[in-house]
Amino acid sequence: MSKEHDRGMTIIVKTVTRLTVGLIFLYGIYIILHGHLTPGGGFAGGVIVALSFINVDLAFGGKVSDRIFSKGSTSVIEALGGVMFLALALLGLQWGGFFDNFLHPDGEPGMLISAGIIPLENIAISLKVGAGLFAIFLTLITLQKFESEKK
């Protein structure tokens, strides 16, 4: 067995995770991008994307998930989402006011490219929520490891 199999859960959980985690991630992306057409949006989609990373972390142990998405990059991505949201709000000042929907008349309602800045705001919110939740999870996990090493 390779080194990857030493940590984490059993081989069954690892195999099922390897098969399904990509689908969970894709479902989160779908929920985010179709947030202005169907139920869902940035909040739900962001948490689903974070849950796919949490799934990898729980099944394979901390080292594998740290290689994909480390603790430093969560804070960078969360800040990126916040800055993107605020930048969209401030760009509206050029046209009418704070949070003005300046792209709105482009696109037909009901299509994927429509509704002005709402899809972009959905992406920003999902980055913020997903990265924030995953940062909280990683912090709680790493402190537990720290405590068990101390004993």
Binding site: G35, H36, L37, P39, A89, P109, G116, E121
Partner: peptide
């Protein structure tokens, strides 16, 4: 707003 999901239109446009 052009969004067909009214809840999404409220949280991201009217009440952003």
């Amino acid at each position: 707003t052009g969004a067909t999901n009214v809840v999404s239109a409220i949280i991201l446009d009217y009440r952003a």
